[in-house]
């Protein structure tokens, strides 16, 4: 029995056998590197507390992965960088004024429940950082909806999307004075929002870098952002603002493209991106939350096995 089991593990696929120098570690550190500008800008914008949030989030993520894998005598993968990404991403999608226990509990939840309980890297259904944020929103509704104003300590404001859903477009224009000022504030990132989501420009730079070195494909981000633009236009909203505000760029480039929780086929990725964008706009327009990126991606994560199944390429000769 033993030998047969072992033989079954050694399945040899047909040639050609391609080897590349790409390892999980290299990919993970490329992602961290591409996130650094946006994260660094968040620290510049919101102060030292933001840096503490990032460090505690990353620290707890790595510690949780290492600790639990030691306790349960699993293979320790804490150094492959994926826990660092989860921690960094989580810190970037929480309000910059959140108390430190928020990212610490969130990172623990992301790694222990969303990642390791489902079987570790490669087996998680949901993007760990996003699922942890959903849990944090449910658990700390007040801390997760108080937004610091850029460059001003201790004063809170509303995010552009929050203003839009509370008091309408005229209030947003009042706040930014002119439309051009609004677009540029959102593009460069000088607005209230989650720690690392405000600057569309820096996220775009990081995202394009990842596409250029072929770590992610362009399909999911392009479809995601494109369908947010189109659907917002159909709802009669300012489509450019819809794309630049909230977590669209961060979600489209860095979360919807998560290898594990997104489809593998070309058509699947297009469907996935379109679905994320459409759900984002539907949640923004029709649900009670001002922002929909998080739930849109999580909902599409659930649909990935189905999408993969229906878009599986046919083998030659298969009917």
């Amino acid at each position: 029995m033993q030998s047969q089991n072992e033989l079954q593990r050694l399945v040899c696929s047909s040639s050609p056998h391609v080897r590349s120098g790409i390892t999980i570690k290299k990919i993970m550190f490329a992602v961290v590197f591409s996130l650094l500008p946006a994260a660094g800008y968040g620290v510049y914008l919101f102060g030292m507390h933001a840096l503490l949030l990032i460090l505690s989030s990353i620290g707890m993520a790595v510690l949780t992965e290492f600790g639990l894998q030691k306790i349960f005598r699993m293979k320790v993968t804490a150094s492959d960088g994926s826990a660092i990404i989860t921690g960094l991403l989580l810190a970037m999608i929480i309000p910059p004024s959140a108390p430190l226990y928020v990212p610490i509990i969130g990172s623990f939840f992301a790694i222990a429940i969303v990642k390791l309980a489902f079987g570790g890297l490669g087996s998680n259904i949901f993007n760990p950082a996003l699922a942890a944020r959903a849990f944090l929103v449910a658990s700390f509704p007040v801390a997760m909806t108080i937004w610091a104003r850029p460059h001003v300590d201790g004063i809170t404001g509303a995010t552009p999307l929050g203003m839009l859903s509370e008091s309408g477009m005229s209030a947003v224009l009042d706040h930014f004075k002119t439309k051009i000022a609004m677009y540029s504030a959102m593009f460069f990132g000088n607005t209230s929002g989650s720690l690392g989501e405000t600057s569309a420009l820096l996220l775009l730079v990081g995202g394009l870098f990842l596409i250029a070195i072929r770590v992610i494909s362009w399909r999911i981000p392009a479809m995601f952002i494109g369908s947010v633009y189109l659907c917002s236009f159909l709802f009669g909203k300012d489509p450019l603002m819809a794309v630049l505000s909230g977590g669209v760029f961060l979600g489209a480039f860095f979360m919807a493209t998560d290898y594990v929780s997104s489809p593998t086929t070309t058509i699947g990725q297009i469907i996935f991106g379109l679905g994320c964008g459409m759900l984002t706009v539907l949640i923004r327009e029709l649900a009670s939350y001002p922002e929909g990126v998080m739930f849109a991606i999580l909902l599409m994560n659930c649909a990935v096995p189905l999408i993969d199944r229906f878009t599986k390429p046919k083998t030659l000769g298969q009917k």
Binding site: I113, A138, S139, F140, P141
Partner: peptide, 14 residues
């Protein structure tokens, strides 16, 4: 200190 999520529905499943 409380983690509200635990009294909501997701907390039950967790």
């Amino acid at each position: 200190f409380s983690v509200l999520g635990f009294v909501l529905a997701p907390g039950a499943f967790l």
